[in-house]
Structure formats: structure tokens, C-alpha cells
Design a protein around this nucleic acid. Structure first.
Length: 952
RNA sequence: GCGAGAGUGGCGAAAUUGGCAGACGCGCUGGACUUAGGAUCCAGUGGGCCAAAAGCCCUUGGGGGUUCAACUCCCCCCUCUCGCACCA
């Protein structure tokens, strides 16, 4: 590494821009920005409104980064890529008349923070505070133009008090399907009491009207309406982490996203948030967002809307309801399949195998019950790897029962098979092997009848046919296309009361409890009969008790028979509390689970706006000013949200959900939290492993003879993430020491467009340092330290280049292509070095150069600006504007092609017409030589572009 | 398997959206200043033919097409990255 202290060398000019000088300049300007409150953004009202009148006429702009969780490893150079990008844009917008709010907080609750604390044997409160301090110092050195007053930490009581408050709003609300929005439960109760409505379907198991229900029954009905509710259901239990997880936190391989531990399904009573009520709106409103298409697509896939029908198949055990997207194929349903966990399986299992049961259907067992036990047992014993490998081979077992196809009247067998998931649709399907590949495979394996209901084309050679075609073997549907057949059959099903059109989502309700210590406690207590009671807002925050034995029990990660045990249960004094909640002092038990990692990040961007408000989570006027819709139909939200694509589903879906609840309840004016999303790329790096597969320090690896070596031993190289454990981390601190923060900023922005991943290359950083050195030298005499600005004439060519550079730099920054902005600045400076060598530079050139550099390398730009004689910071100085008249040259160089190949360059007036251009081209000696004795078949002249003679 | 995106010098990349391919850098080569150079400055640097220059030819993953003109538009294929994956 080039960590030299060259300023100490005698032959280095005394006023050269070196790492040492950069360090001085950077700390001086950082202090000054802080002292002068340069980046404080004023709210229209409230505690942070000082100075608002001065900026009231500006256009507001809310710029936000996905906030980091403060890990113990500190920052590496990959972390700040997005932060630098947003800072460049923020500074640019500020110089263009915008009123920019930009800050940075910390996502401090959650598993990573707690695990780090456990590893280091310290309390998470201590490690979190220390880690945040490290992050703040590293980030401060970057010179980010943030309003630090607005920084929030999700684990501070002043913050999580409001996370708890929002949970209470969710708890005290229900989704009014008729109105298409969430409403307070008080409104529901009023309408029920007034007889204006009856409980929603599925919430009243008592079979009597509201007016006839007892107090306890009414309580039950109300609890079933809540957007936050307790439910006993199979959840994702992860012994390795000691907690249950949301579906979004479990990988397709059935392991925890964090830590990669096995996850088991286990029935437990847990808090759920009714995100499914918002499925349609979460899907529809994606259209209103300026987000990367791949992220929208990921959310669409996760929500997984499919339109189809539910159909009831009568059986001796009762009606079996199935979901299908192809109701038109119902005549071809030759058997039913239930998921192994389906509640009706037990009732469907016959005592003995019916007569004529085929050998293949029994699995060799003596009775259906035995077969079922064997089948469920073999599924549970399979390892994940085996499940992946045999995922496509169909297994299952006959229940011994039959059902009736309600349309064709056919008697069809009922199977249980693990290719049907309990979590989707109704957990049961009608199998139509003729039109479904999976059903075909199963039908082949179990020798079941196959009836085609859509006629395949003549040349079709496959098995199941899923394409378009006329219906066959389908009674009154015969001859119809799929769409029309669907319409007819759904009408028929509804008319005969055996089915209905319906929409199903893949999205499940959000499992919201975690058996961990380091999270927000729920603002919930349980009364003497074990029912949850919300604490009044006045009792918030429910503070996390200070505990020394906060770690969850250490389970064997592979032991499915363990059970979660919230650490807060050990805080016995805290866990029981005597309260007067309106009916006298009584003893209550507290909720012992905590909220998941994602709770704080669901709304932190709102709190940034009004971080000190202790009466509301945000003042409505402040929220409307920064996040409100700009026009009717506009979703509102943060103007630009920058972060990694890894949050495409989890955080971004949860935050949208909370935003919509808050919107429905009238607390915020924006329907969406993030109007525009931008995914920055990763900074990647090479990592090296020795022959045992152990990582070796990447910085000590040498490349020679076509191979890589560490201490003389060959190592293998792989490319990927940067990380401490991979021994390929480079810290910003190393770069600050070697070159300064401005160099690091410029380097990171120079390696490519912001949305692209790029490799880190320490040896290339010097190029950005040299650029700053050269710009410094353009303005400052390295020997004397004097400003080189002089009263010298500017050529038209130079002036044009300045204006062209301004136009290009503006365009590049606005498109978040900072690499090309830097290239154009470098180009201009290279030109100035030549054009004004030894003469000093004109002010009219030096000043725009410095101002253009300012968003990218703000410290050195401020220093140069001040040395150019300006007493004030340039942070609010107008960004240079290009004069359109200065962009065009009087004469331009035009390529002349013969048959599409450039053979000459001629000079023509920029406004030359076609004839003049052709004339100029023919006048060129080389062109004339090429054309001599040949017939020109065609001449293409594009004014201002080129001339092409076609002779071939 | 399905969906999305991407393939340009040794490396990171650029190309006003169909008009001089490789801007700006790293690296490399040579030179200057030097006790020294892992500092700084200057020059050169896609490949080939040629002693060199001039000149000519080739070149944006591969193949075909449209066009006076294709990194850019169309068709087929290959490779890589990401997401989803028995979702009925």
C-alpha cells in the first residue's frame, strides 16, 4: 500500500495536496460545517424550524440511505458507497435551490447486535453504543452533509416508545374490506353496537348475532378482527437462533437467512400482523413507484397473486375445498390431493383399505392409518439435501376415502402428498393430470386415470398440456377457449353453490414475535384469563429491563424437539406488574416476546423528520411537508431511497405495510414510504484461501508467474463480498490515512455508475488522489501556496469546454453516474493544465471548476473556494449553469467516410448545410484521391455529424 | 425449469441513444527530477502486417439480418450474475 508520508520529504513542494494536507483541510471544514450548522435542514414548524423562512421558497427534497446496523467490525470501504452517492447528490441539489433533508441513523435492535454482544460477553446496550460511536466517527470523517440532529437509534427509548405506539395503533385497528382500508376498532364496535354491521366472515364462531353475544364472546370476535393478533399456528422455529422467524427470513432451503441454521415447523402461539389484508394494495401501488423493475418483480412474486376459484368436493368426511387457477379443467380432475398437514386428513383416513385399492396406493401398509404414519415419518426424517434431490419425484399415500367431482359426478380417490403445500390456497388441490405436469407425474406413479380437457395441437408430443386450446371431454364447456371456459364454469359453480371465483396470495401474515432479548418489548400485558390487553399510550415506553443473562438458551440447532423460551421470562420482577387499567389495580403478566429486527426500520424515515417530538411520532405538518404527495394521485414518500437490493422483499415490504396502516388511520399523508428507490452496487474484492481452505490476508498476497502466492505458498483466488472473516477488508481509515477522505469519495464514485458492483482495487486509488492534486495545482501554486488566479485571456475553445463540461457534469450527477462527472472534470482540468501552463488561470474558469468538484470532493473544494477569496461556504452557492450559446463551436470537425469507413476529417462551419458539407468533404485531398475515377452512388450528409460517400 | 439483467483493451469503464469505438483512470513501457522512488511530472499504450513511419487490415461473447452507417435495432445461439422455484 502507498501509505507514504511524502509531505515530510524535503523535495516535495511545501504546498502540495498530500494526505497530510488533506487531513488538515478535512477536519477544518468538518468543524466549520458543524459550527455554522451548514447542513441543518429546517422544518416548517416545531423544534427544528429555526431558519425555515430562509429556505421556504426552495423545493424540498428528502434524501435517505438505508440505515446500517452497527456491527462490531466497523465499516469497510464497501459500506459507504451509497452514503457517498447520496451525499454527492444532496450537495448538488442544495447548490441547485433545493431544501435537502439528509441524515443517518442506526438500526440497533435485533439479532446481529445481540449475537455480537453474546460473542464478546458484553451487554448489547454497551456493545451497541460502542459500535455506533465507531460508525459515527468513521462516517464523520467522510464529510457527509448530514443534519446530525435528526439521527435516531432504534434501540433508544425515545425512539422505540413510538415503535410500541405504532404497534398499539395496529393492534387497535381492523381492516374494513368494504371501505378497502384499515379503521380503528372503536368505529367497528360502534357500528356493531348500533346494528349497522355484523362481524366479518370468519370472526364469529358462535353462530349468533353480535347483539346476542356475551361480553367474552364479543371480546373474542373483536380480537379476531385486529391487524395485530395472537394465533396458534405452525411457525418457523429455529433452535440455532433460539427464536421463531418470519417466512421472509427463511430461505428456500428451509434454513434461516441469518446464520443458515435449520428451521422447523412448530405450532406455537405467536403475534401476527395482518399484512395479507394489504396484499392487493401492496401489489397495485407498486405501479405508482419509481423503483427498479427487478425489485418490483420480487415483491410481486412474493405477494404471489393468483386468480382462480375455490371448489367444494363432497366426501363422507365433509366437503373438501380446493383452490385452482384452472377451474376450466375441472372435468379432468381424476383425484384430489391434500397437504400432509391438512386438518381434514385425520377424518378422511378410512379404517381399512376399500375393495379394489391398488397395491401402489397403500405403500405396503396394512391400513390407511399405518400408511399415513409411515408417510409422515419418512418425510420428517429426510434431510434438506435429500428433499432437494427428490423434490421432483412424487410420493404420497391414499387416504382410503373418495370424493365426488361436483361437476362431472365422478367418484375420485383422495390422496395425501407432500407436493401440495398447506400454506397455499386451501392446502388441497383437484388433480388434473392432463393439464398439469406435477399431477401427470403423480398420476403416472400411482396409475391414476388421465383425462385431457384441452385439446393439444397435433404436433404436441409432451405429457401434460398447459397451453391454449379448445376444451374437450368437458360437457357444456367443449369447444371453448380457456378464458371463456373459466368464465362459464365459475358462473356454473356459483349458481350451484359448489364454488366461487377467488383470489389467493402467496403472502402470509407477518409473524411478529421473537424469543430474543434485544428488541422492542410489546406494549401488551395479559389479564387473569390470559387475554392480551393493550397498555395505554401514556404508559409508554415499556422499557426493556436491564438483564445480565440476556442470551437465549443454547439449543442444538438440529433438535426440532426444543421449544422457544423468551429471555424476558427470566426478568421475573419485570414480567409481572400491577396496574390500574381502568377497573382497579390488578396484577398482569407482561408479554415476554420482543418485536423482530424489522420493526424499527418500518418507520424510522418518518422519525428523522421530527426526531425530538415527545407528543407525537411525527407532527402531521412536518410529515406533509417532507413526504406528502405533490399532486393528486401521487403516492408521496421519501424522494430518493438508496440501499442494497438485499432488502427487496423484507424491509421494503414491511415498511410499505406500516406506512399504509398509518395512512389509513390518518397519521400520515403519504401512501408509500419511498417514492423512488435506487439499489447501489456492491464493492467486491478478491479473497484468497490456502490449500486447507483457510483465508489468508488478501493484502499480503503476491501475483507472479501467472499464479497467486502468500508467503511463497500458492493460494486460490475467489471474488465476492468484502468482510473481516474473508481477510479482504479494507477500512476507510486506511484510506483516510493514505490519501484523505476526498480521495476515497472520488475513487468510490469513479469506479462505475452507482448501481453497479465494482471490485475494490487499493492500488488504483492513487489515480483519484492525483486528480485532486492536479486540480489543487491548477488553483494553488505548490511552491508558494499563492492562488494562481490571474487576469489572462480565455480562448473560445476553453470557454466552450467549460460550458460543455458543466452541461455534462450536471447530466451525469442527475443520472447518478458520478464516474462520468469525474471524467469530465478531469478532462477539463487536463485541458487547463495545457492551456494555462505557467500563466495562472482565469477566475472565470477556476471558479466553475471548483464548484463542480464540490459535491464530489467537498473539503478540498471548500478550501480552494475560500482561497479564491470567498468567505462563505460553497455548500449553498449556485452550481454553475451552462450557457447554451457557449456549447456550440463556430467550426466543427466532421468525419468523412468512404463506404462507411472514416478516411478523413474536415473542418466545416457548425451551421453548414448539406451542400456546404459535401463540398468541404470533396475538397479534401485524401477524399478526392479516394473518389478519383470512381462513381459516387450516393452521398449521405448528416448536418453537424458526418459525410458518407457510397461508391462500392 | 421460469423470470429479470449483463457480456466492450491486461483491469475499472465511456460512447450526445443509429453517426470518428475505447473518453477518464489503473496498470504497463520509456523519459525527467532524484542518494533513492512504492512520490511527482512528461510521452506512449486495443490487436495485426511493417525495421520504422506512412498506410492498410481486424476488433464491442458467437452467428445471421436491417441500414449509406450497428456496442446501440431485429432473429438464433453461448456464457455469467441475480431473483423465484412442486404456489395448483
Amino acid at each position: 500500500m502507498a501509505a507514504t508520508s511524502d509531505s515530510a520529504r524535503e523535495d516535495v513542494p511545501p504546498y502540495r495536496y498530500t494526505a497530510a494536507l488533506a487531513a488538515q483541510i478535512e477536519s477544518r471544514w468538518q468543524e466549520r460545517w458543524e459550527r455554522e450548522e451548514t447542513f441543518h435542514a429546517a422544518n416548517p414548524v416545531g423544534a427544528l424550524s429555526k431558519g425555515f423562512t430562509a429556505v421556504a421558497g426552495r423545493r424540498k427534497y428528502y434524501l435517505n440511505d438505508m440505515f446500517p446496523y452497527p456491527s462490531g467490525a466497523g465499516l469497510h470501504v464497501g459500506h459507504p458507497l451509497g452514503y457517498i452517492g447520496t451525499d454527492v447528490l444532496g450537495r448538488y441539489l442544495r447548490m441547485n435551490g433545493h431544501h435537502v433533508v439528509h441524515t443517518m441513523g442506526f438500526d440497533a435492535f435485533g439479532l446481529p447486535a445481540e449475537q455480537y454482544a453474546i460473542e464478546t460477553g458484553q451487554h448489547p446496550r454497551v456493545t451497541t453504543a460502542a459500535n455506533i460511536e465507531t460508525f459515527r466517527q468513521q462516517l464523520r470523517r467522510l464529510g457527509l452533509g448530514h443534519d446530525r440532529r435528526r439521527s435516531v437509534v432504534t434501540s433508544d427509548t425515545g425512539f422505540y416508545r413510538w415503535t410500541q405506539w405504532i404497534f398499539l395503533q395496529i393492534f387497535e385497528a381492523w381492516y374494513d374490506d368494504a371501505a378497502g382500508r384499515a379503521r380503528p376498532l372503536t368505529a367497528l364496535i360502534a357500528e356493531l353496537d348500533a346494528g349497522a354491521r355484523e362481524p366479518a366472515p370468519g370472526t364469529n364462531p358462535f353462530g349468533r348475532r353480535w347483539a346476542a353475544l356475551s361480553q367474552a364472546e364479543r371480546r373474542h370476535v373483536i380480537d379476531d378482527h385486529r391487524l395485530a393478533y395472537l394465533r396458534e399456528a405452525p411457525v418457523n422455529w429455529c433452535p440455532g437462533l433460539g427464536t421463531v422467524l418470519a417466512n421472509e427470513e427463511v430461505t428456500a432451503e428451509g434454513r434461516s437467512e441469518r446464520g443458515n441454521f435449520p428451521v422447523f415447523r412448530k405450532p406455537l402461539k405467536q403475534w401476527m400482523l395482518r399484512i395479507t389484508a394489504y396484499a392487493e394494495r401492496l401489489l397495485d401501488d407498486l405501479e405508482r413507484l419509481d423503483w427498479p423493475e427487478n425489485v418490483k418483480e420480487m415483491q410481486r412474486n412474493w405477494i404471489g397473486r393468483s386468480a382462480g376459484a375455490r371448489v367444494r368436493f363432497p366426501s363422507l368426511a365433509g366437503d373438501i375445498e380446493i383452490f385452482t387457477t384452472r377451474p376450466d379443467t375441472v372435468f379432468g380432475a381424476t383425484y384430489l390431493v391434500l397437504a400432509p398437514e391438512h386438518p381434514m386428513v385425520r377424518a378422511l383416513i378410512a379404517a381399512i383399505w376399500p375393495d379394489g385399492t391398488r397395491e401402489a396406493w397403500t405403500g405396503g401398509a396394512a391400513t390407511p392409518a399405518e400408511a399415513m404414519i409411515a408417510y409422515q415419518g419418512s418425510a420428517a426424517r429426510r434431510t434438506e439435501v435429500e428433499r432437494q434431490e427428490i423434490a421432483r419425484t412424487k410420493t404420497g399415500v391414499f387416504t382410503g376415502s373418495w370424493a365426488t367431482n361436483p361437476v362431472s359426478g365422478a367418484r375420485i380417490p383422495v390422496f395425501v402428498a407432500d407436493y401440495v403445500m398447506m400454506g397455499y390456497g386451501t392446502g388441497a388441490i383437484m388433480a388434473v393430470p392432463g393439464q398439469d405436469e406435477r399431477d401427470w407425474e403423480f398420476a403416472e406413479a400411482f396409475d391414476l386415470p388421465i383425462v385431457r380437457t384441452v385439446e393439444p395441437p397435433e404436433d404436441f408430443r409432451g405429457k401434460a398440456y398447459v397451453g391454449e386450446g379448445p376444451a374437450i371431454n368437458s360437457g357444456f364447456l367443449d369447444g371453448l377457449g380457456i378464458a371463456e371456459a373459466k368464465r362459464r364454469i365459475v358462473a356454473w359453480l356459483e349458481e350451484h353453490g359448489v364454488g366461487a371465483a377467488t383470489v389467493t396470495y402467496r403472502l402470509r401474515d407477518w409473524l411478529f414475535s421473537r424469543q430474543r432479548y434485544w428488541g422492542e418489548p410489546f406494549p401488551i400485558v395479559y389479564d387473569e384469563v390470559g387475554l392480551p390487553v393493550a397498555l395505554p399510550a401514556a404508559m409508554l415506553p415499556v422499557e426493556l429491563p436491564d438483564m445480565n443473562d440476556f442470551a437465549p438458551p443454547a439449543y442444538d440447532p438440529h433438535d426440532a424437539d426444543t421449544a422457544p423460551e423468551p429471555p424476558l421470562g427470566r426478568a421475573t420482577e419485570w414480567a409481572t406488574v400491577t396496574l390500574d387499567l381502568g377497573d382497579g389495580a390488578k396484577s398482569y403478566r407482561r408479554e415476554l416476546n420482543t418485536m423482530p429486527q424489522w420493526a424499527g426500520s418500518c418507520w424510522y424515515e418518518i422519525r428523522y423528520l421530527d426526531p425530538t417530538n415527545d407528543r407525537r411520532f411525527v407532527d402531521p405538518e412536518i410529515e406533509r411537508y417532507w413526504m406528502g404527495p405533490r399532486a393528486p394521485g401521487d403516492a408521496g414518500g421519501v424522494d430518493l431511497y438508496v440501499g442494497g437490493v438485499e432488502h427487496a422483499v423484507l424491509h421494503l415490504l414491511y415498511a410499505r405495510f406500516w406506512q399504509k396502516v398509518l395512512f389509513d388511520l390518518g397519521y400520515v399523508s403519504a401512501v408509500e414510504p419511498f417514492r423512488r428507490l435506487f439499489n447501489q452496487g456492491l464493492v467486491q474484492a478478491y479473497a484468497y484461501t490456502d490449500e486447507r481452505g483457510v483465508y489468508v490476508p488478501a493484502q499480503e498476497v503476491e501475483e507472479h508467474d501467472g499464479g497467486f502466492f502468500w508467503r511463497g505458498r500458492p493460494v486460490t483466488r475467489q471474488y465476492g463480498r468484502m468482510g473481516k472473516s474473508l481477510k479482504n477488508s479494507v477500512t476507510p481509515d486506511e484510506m483516510y490515512a493514505a490519501y484523505g477522505a476526498d480521495t476515497l469519495r472520488v475513487y468510490e464514485m469513479f469506479t462505475g455508475p452507482l448501481d453497479q458492483s465494482r471490485p475494490w482495487e487499493t492500488r488504483a486509488v492513487v489515480g483519484s488522489h492525483r486528480l485532486l492534486q492536479r486540480i489543487w495545482r491548477t488553483v494553488i501554486d505548490e511552491e508558494t501556496g499563492a492562488c494562481r488566479v490571474a487576469d489572462v485571456a480565455i480562448s473560445d475553445a476553453t470557454l466552450r469546454l467549460v460550458h460543455r463540461t458543466i452541461a455534462a457534469v450536471r447530466d451525469s450527477i442527475e443520472g447518478l453516474r458520478f464516474n462520468t462527472a469525474i471524467a469530465r472534470i478531469a478532462e477539463l482540468n487536463n485541458h487547463l493544465t495545457q492551456a494555462f501552463a505557467g500563466r495562472g488561470v482565469p477566475r472565470a474558469v477556476a471558479e466553475p471548476l471548483v464548484l463542480m468538484l464540490a459535491p464530489l470532493a467537498p473539503h478540498v473544494a471548500e478550501e480552494l473556494w475560500s482561497r479564491l477569496g470567498h468567505p462563505c461556504s460553497l455548500a449553498w452557492e449556485p452550481f454553475p449553469t451552462a450557457n447554451p450559446a457557449r456549447l456550440v463551436d463556430e467550426t466543427i470537425e466532421i468525419p468523412v467516410q468512404i463506404d462507411g469507413k472514416v478516411r478523413a476529417i474536415v473542418l466545416v462551419a457548425s451551421n453548414a448545410d448539406q451542400a456546404e458539407m459535401e463540398h468541404a468533404a470533396r475538397a479534401d485531398a485524401r477524399v478526392a484521391a479516394y473518389l478519383a475515377g470512381r462513381t459516387v452512388r450516393k452521398v449521405v450528409v448528416v448536418p453537424g455529424r458526418l459525410v458518407n460517400f457510397v461508391v462500392g
